[in-house]
Nucleic acid binder design. Structure first.
Lengths: 223, 223
DNA sequence: ATAAAATGATAGTTTTACTATTAACTTTGA
DNA sequence: TCAAAGTTAATAGTAAAACTATCATTTTAT
């Protein structure tokens, strides 16, 4: 699938102090922040280490983001905006609900292998981060407050978009939202366990992959 | 379902320095540790605060557990042992695979409402902790090492047990393990979002609940 | 060329996540 | 019953994390 290059998405303004896309330093923070989290993990990640990485100062990074948690929420927002964009792109000019469902499910369950679009965001690495760190972004005691602030809107949009297409395929189905969120969370989880808990997954076997599993499963549930 | 009181499970010895079930202080650590994590969340939880809670000393708690991460892994192990136990109990003397599946799925997807069994472990509160904190237990950079040390065996056993029963119901099904892990993780997630992201779930509606959804869904997939 | 804005360097604070030491208390077993 | 052994409490101390504040310097925009 070919997407226009140099994408930009509107990110909730409360997630940053200064727009990181607006300056060279800001874009360096995004780019190397993603690489560093992927490398050492979110717990070990600090703004001090990131400062060293980009030969810049800890306090300079604090001028862009309040703390590393907000930074992760920013990256997550960007990621889900990008997924939503790909989903909408994939169903352009398609009318048949089932075909739409298959396309959308593919986009939301596939693993990203290449850095295709943005110069300062490596989507493949960001995808890895979401797979292994996203749950930490919302599983905190501040979730209800942050939810009110709209930090998870894009994520919920992705799920709602899938839920709507499920409802188009089978209007009398009672659990389109639960099913949609199962697919989105489940796919992230399958990608995670296929790397770390190989004994409880089939996706290390040839000819078996996550999108196919979900598409077949949805067909069985809905048709 | 009636279970024998005062359960004890064998927990991986590397998860603790001194067996907390063996002393009064140890049991206080378990009991109030669970309550405190539930109250303030795992990030804010420290051994210092727990020490204040039980009018004991920080350093005394460190004699039982290396750090709070190991403590969470200990609690998780206990929890999944208890789930596995309930699953096996539920299918005693039942031969029909589909009936076994239904019973087992109920046990693994239901929400625990009461503290039924153990004096120093409130299962309902522990269930809440697992719903909102379990992913933090394995989503760390140490996962592969910890997996080798067997810290997640019980969790994987629960999933394998479910996968085996799925395979009994439909021997030619290709994704019994992926499906089993989808159910276990998915159920935790559904309980989480029904509390925090009400717009993307149906489980706040009357007559809709998580176990029913999963049982119906599995029937559609497998029959 | 100059003012304004952005960044860097340095230093300081509070909290977390521990470790070490020693004192006090409790158990047990001869 | 008494002493040794083991357990727990109190205190102190360290290193790193997670910031905040200040001021100097560099960059940029007009």
């Amino acid at each position: 699938m070919k997407l226009p290059g140099n994408l930009r998405f509107t990110i909730n303004e409360k997630l940053y102090l200064k727009d990181p896309e607006s300056s060279v330093l800001g874009r360096k923070i995004l780019k190397h922040g993603i690489l560093l989290i992927d490398e050492i993990g979110f717990e070990a990640f600090t703004f001090k280490k990131l400062g060293d990485c980009i030969a810049s100062n800890e306090s300079s990074i604090y001028r862009y983001f309040e703390n590393k948690h907000k930074f992760l929420l920013y990256l997550s927002s960007w990621y889900w905006s990008w997924v939503e964009y790909r989903m909408l792109f994939a169903i352009q000019n398609i009318d048949e609900p089932l075909q739409k469902l298959h396309k959308v499910v593919y986009e939301v369950t596939c693993e990203i292998k290449d850095d295709v679009n943005t110069e300062y965001i490596d989507e493949a690495v960001l995808n890895r981060i979401i797979i292994s760190e996203y749950s930490k972004a919302f599983m905190s005691k501040e979730i209800d407050k942050e939810n009110k602030d709209g930090f998870f809107i894009v994520y919920k949009n992705v799920i709602s978009l899938l839920a709507d297409i499920i409802a188009e395929v089978k209007p009398d189905y009672l659990y389109s939202k639960a099913l949609a969120s199962s697919v989105v969370v489940g796919a992230l989880n399958q990608h995670f366990i296929k790397q770390h808990f190989k004994s409880i997954t089939e996706f290390t076997e040839p000819n078996k992959d996550v999108p196919t599993f979900y598409i077949q499963t949805l067909d069985k549930i809905l048709l």
